[in-house]
């Protein structure tokens, strides 16, 4: 398998003792995570275990209360400047795509390059077309999101993130809202992205995807990282009982 590779030493994302509460509810308990450049991480775990919260803390869609997060050498604190710097370097793909319905596919992709990177429109549209071609959907560029299938929308969402040329990509269950026959077209795009060396953190229950591309699989439960290992060891020889229970549940389905 291609999984065991020589990785860069540069740390792209680091979470140190991250804690988060929703009121009284302790969602994240001492999360420690180090992601090196080019590394592909899959996060799994039962629903409500804090997987989304963990990756949403990385680009400050959620605020953590304790601990440190450093992304691409920028410390994530309350400084808006730092937050915007980090968001420029971190792309995110959501379960429900969240494309902008009032803009065409092309405009969805060109929006951030124009308004954030201050790219001239013609150039921004060229970039957009380049990535739309990469996700094999360039012929839909002038349509509106509502005219596309779920799988196509999710590929557009991936292209939209890539247009900002991010150093890290976060995926939050990118295929769970899709009909089964569309899952593959999205996973294929993600696998290609991995092969090109993108640093990826991916919350997913697609274990086939985890086995092919992940360098490490992380299992979370009740706001904690319970286990983390290379895919082969993780699937064949899970250490904790909770991991075993979880795996037997989803692999039997």
């Amino acid at each position: 398998m291609s999984n065991t590779r020589q990785l860069d030493d540069k740390v792209m994302v680091e979470m140190r003792g991250v804690n988060k509460w929703y009121g009284q509810f302790h969602v994240l308990k001492d999360v420690n995570l180090k992601v090196r450049q080019g590394e592909r991480i899959v996060i799994c775990g039962p629903s409500g275990s804090g997987k989304s919260t963990t990756i949403r803390c990385i680009n400050r869609l959620e605020e953590h209360q304790k601990g440190d997060i450093v992304v691409a050498d920028t410390v994530l604190n309350n400084d808006l400047k730092n937050i915007e710097t980090i968001r420029r370097e971190v792309g995110m793909v959501f379960q429900h795509f969240n494309l902008f319905p009032h803009l065409t596919v092309l405009e969805n992709c060109a929006l951030a390059p124009i308004w954030v990177r201050k790219t001239p429109r013609a150039e921004a549209e060229e970039i957009a077309m380049k990535y739309l071609r990469r996700v094999r959907i360039e012929e839909q560029a002038l349509k509106y999101p509502g005219q596309l299938s779920g799988g196509q929308q999710q590929r557009v969402a991936i292209a939209r993130s890539l247009c900002m040329n991010p150093q890290v990509m976060l995926f939050d269950e990118p295929t769970s809202a899709l009909d089964p026959e569309m899952i593959k077209e999205v996973l294929d795009v993600m696998i290609e992205l991995a092969e090109e060396g993108m640093t990826m953190l991916c919350v997913t229950h697609e274990m086939g995807f985890a086995k092919t591309v992940a360098d490490r699989v992380i299992f979370m439960d009740k706001g904690q990282i319970i286990e983390e290992n290379e895919p082969e060891a993780f699937f064949n020889n899970p250490q904790s009982e909770r991991t075993q229970a979880f795996l037997s549940q989803i692999l039997n389905h």
């Binding site: 680009n59 869609l61 808006l80 915007e84 968001r87 420029r88 971190v90 792309g91 995110m92 959501f94 429900h96 969240n98 494309l99 902008f100 319905p101 009032h102 929006l111 951030a112 308004w115 954030v116 969402a157 939209r160 993130s161 900002m164």
Partner: peptide, 27 residues
Amino acid sequence: VSKGQTEAASALGLSQGKVLRLVVIPQ
């Protein structure tokens, strides 16, 4: 205009004012 719209726009690096102007208000 769903929360997901604001989140997607913020995640792209748009400032709060631009999120409002380009994504929330037009919708």
